[in-house]
Design a protein around this nucleic acid. Structure first.
Lengths: 92, 92
DNA sequence: CAATGTTACGATACACGTAATCATA
DNA sequence: TATGATTACGTGTATCGTAACATTG
């Protein structure tokens, strides 16, 4: 599991479409497909249903999406907090 | 930023010692040193004070530690939740 | 010499993008 | 043919571990 895979998953879940998610992430489709496959493999569960028009979340995928967003939010918070603490070192 | 770097950071913070953290992570010292350096570089802040006997958290490091633990906990929770949802698919 | 962390360097593994493939209508 | 995802394959980068280095007592 990696943060990159998690970001890819969230993008695909929100776009319901690998191609659009790829554009949004400035990536091509193949790596994105592989990210999803790696997650599904590691979690031992299918996260998306592959439909004619794109990707649709399965129950396991919806469950994972909640956590995925919290993980990314926590990473953002970590970045902000550390920069804040370090930036205010002398500023008081 | 990667989950591996975050795991390394937490181990070093808890052991106050790169060598012990490396053993705990089944790794050697150099990659661990580089993980910490990469984090410090990316965050733009020094996380540890290098002392004679090992590593000691600086304020920015303590701030980051809180978030780091939450990120890892959230990842664990994601694993458990997804496996639970997927496992109970037919079990009712 | 013994213990700490760091840097240099070569081998391996990972991840990308292009191109080709499968499926649907 | 057009749109969607996936697989095959070559290449560039990242990451590891060993070995060498610097610091401290």
């Amino acid at each position: 599991m990696s943060l990159t895979h998690i970001q890819s998953f969230v993008a695909v879940a929100e776009e319901c479409n690998v191609s659009r998610a790829a554009r949004r992430l400035h990536l091509t489709q193949p790596p994105l497909t592989r990210h999803i496959q790696a997650l599904e493999d590691e979690l031992g569960a299918r996260l998306f249903e592959r439909t004619r028009g794109g990707m649709r979340l399965l129950p396991a995928g919806e469950a994972f999406l909640c956590h995925a967003r919290r993980i990314l939010a926590e990473v953002d918070a970590a970045l902000l907090t550390v920069r804040d603490v370090a930036g205010s070192r002398t500023g008081g």
